[in-house]
Nucleic acid binder design. Structure first.
Lengths: 125, 125
DNA sequence: CAGTATCCTATTAGATACTG
DNA sequence: CAGTATCTAATAGGATACTG
């Protein structure tokens, strides 16, 4: 069972930066958080938004986010089963962070598309 | 030689979130970027700010940041050698992102100190 | 001072199959 | 539908020693 991620607390004061990063890294956490900003989603709804995530990975990432108090998991005793994921207050408080990441990514999309565009690109603010 | 990190581009539109994250994850990149926001630093100056980083890791992280166009490495032909690291314009454009990460981390410091404080804590905005 | 070079371990992530 | 369970591959990260 994959528990125990980097503690990353052996710094300061940049420590806070790494601590926050530690909660939202993991290959899919950022996107998951991003999509949940729009509201509650079921397991397979999230999955459909992440074309190449495996079931196992998505479960892991969701469990870690839950363990970190960023999202809530609500299981409905139905057949077929239904599980809904939504952000907690703490999770929602990450909105500015997520949006800052997204804004920069959008502004620098060229960087990701063409690695060689480094010199040419205008380095958008 | 550790090259080739996750491409993370198989999403959308949360893609931008992961793309940005991909550039600043790595166990030390966030802090390095943070410290360089204050100005140019030499190799060992950075190292001193990161008590437990190894020489190898710091070098790796710095090289990746450089390859991603976020920082510039300036070598002085002196004895003893001197190498200065500073943010590029693109690196500086990450300031809002880094500061958002830091702000959240500071506001939620309790979360990192005591993992059990999840319920009690007030979930600062 | 600012790295390289090796070697080795731990953590992450993917594939695949099965289940309440 | 929403997971588990295994097994394995890839990657990140650390320890240590050496060098221009």
């Amino acid at each position: 069972m994959p528990r125990m991620r980097h503690s990353r607390l052996d710094c300061s004061p940049g420590c806070a930066v790494e601590a926050t990063l530690g909660l939202i890294d993991g290959k899919w956490k950022g996107v998951v958080l991003y999509h949940l900003l729009d509201g509650t989603l079921r397991f397979n709804e999230i999955r459909r938004k992440l074309p190449s995530v495996t079931q196992r990975m998505l479960t892991n990432q969701l469990r870690e986010l839950e363990a970190d108090g960023l999202l809530a998991r609500k299981v409905f005793a139905e057949v077929p089963p239904r599980v809904e994921y939504s952000l907690t207050d703490r999770g929602r408080s990450l909105r500015p962070v997520i949006m800052a990441l997204k804004a920069w990514g959008d502004a620098n999309a060229a960087l990701f598309a063409a690695p060689a565009a480094l010199d040419a690109a205008p380095a958008a603010a």
